[in-house]
Amino acid sequence: MDGVFAVSRGSSPVILSFPHTSVEVPPEIWERLNDNGRLLADTDWHLHRLYEGLLPDATTVRAGFHRYVVDANRDPAGVSLYPGQNTTTLVPMTDFDGNAIWKDCQAPDEAEIMARRDAFHRPYHEALAAEIERVRAIHGIAVLYDCHSIRSLIPFLFEGRLPDFNIGTDGGVTCDPALEAVVVSAAEQAEGYTHVLNGRFRGGWTTRHYGHPQENVHAIQMELAQVNYLASETVPFDYDPAGAERLRAPLKTLLERVERTALELKRQED
């Protein structure tokens, strides 16, 4: 994938965003990553493939840079999403296991972090904001569904095994209760899977920044446990077609319900 972002425009009120699926790292940055960093282990591996075609009319916005370049789901001001808990920063210094990703003395300084923010983070979010406005202009409502995945076992970030569906609405702040309810209901009805609402992952900066239900912009983050669609959560992080196909069925149901509910909310308002 080339470029800072890629947009595929659709006619649905739903926008799917993918901030962490790219493995693209500019050569001058790649040279400064250590062997651990070059594993790119914290990628949302194959997530765009998992969601492909599930809601055909949805708009998609996908970042074209790896999160080690700059994390598109972190506050551009550098404020922690989860004060007092282990997490990674706007430009990560460690991986999700707390291990260094940069060669000695080659981690970016504050000036470089701000330059990366301006070169990558800002254009991605300008594109995402433009699509939200376009969709809202068409339907009078927009739903940003922020797509994420993560390894199911990461002691540095959370205890035990992560639930399969991790729904984040920042405590119900970022979307209408009806949208939160249909997402939770779909997860509850997904046989063989576990779920949690506003658990360890309550929604990142993207969800919190754009989710303003009073302005008819709703945002929901979905963090999926990778164990359900990867053959292995370690190198080489291969896609598991059979596991993915099982997971795609409840995800499709979930997204279709989100779309219908969004349109119904607008009809009720009118």
Rank of each mutant, 00 (worst) to 15 (best):
G204L: 06
E28S: 09
V258C: 06
V217A: 04
R260F: 11
G140S: 05
L157G: 00
H46W: 09
V91N: 08
L247Y: 05
H212A: 15
L16H: 04
C105P: 00
Y51S: 01
I113G: 09
A231Y: 04
V184H: 00
H121T: 10
E269Q: 15
A58Q: 01
L255W: 03
A111C: 11
A178W: 00
E31V: 07
W30T: 09
P56Q: 03
Y229K: 05
S17F: 04
R62G: 09
A111G: 11
R248G: 07
T60G: 06
T87S: 14
P236M: 07
V7A: 07
N34G: 05
E31S: 13
A130L: 11
E180L: 01
K266G: 04
I15P: 02
V235S: 13
T253P: 03
V258S: 02
D97H: 14
T234E: 15
N228P: 03
P13R: 03
D42K: 01
G78I: 12
Q221C: 10
L265P: 04
S152T: 10
L255I: 06
L230T: 04
D104T: 14
K252V: 00
G172Q: 00
I101F: 06
L265I: 10
A119Q: 09
Y193F: 11
E180V: 01
L16N: 02
R62W: 06
F65A: 10
D238H: 11
S11A: 13
D170R: 05
R117G: 08
E112I: 08
E188K: 15
H121F: 13
P177M: 00
T169I: 03
Q85S: 13
L254E: 05
A137P: 07
L255T: 03
T261Q: 12
T21V: 15
A41Q: 11
R9C: 12
Q268M: 14
T261I: 01
N36K: 13
A41F: 02
Q214E: 15
L224Q: 06
Q221R: 02
F120V: 11
I101V: 13
D170W: 00
A115I: 08
L224M: 09
Y229D: 06
E191D: 13
H20V: 02
K252A: 12
V4D: 09
Y82W: 14
N216Q: 15
H46S: 09
R257G: 06
R151E: 05
R267I: 10
V70M: 11
D104Y: 12
P236I: 07
T87V: 15
S22A: 14
L162F: 07
E52Y: 08
P163W: 01
I150N: 00
D44H: 06
M1P: 15
V79P: 12
K266W: 12
H209T: 11
T261D: 06
A231M: 13
N73K: 08
E180N: 00
G203R: 03
V91S: 03
P56I: 02
C147E: 02
A77Y: 12
T60W: 08
I154Y: 05
G199E: 04
A186T: 00
A100L: 11
V217H: 04
F120H: 11
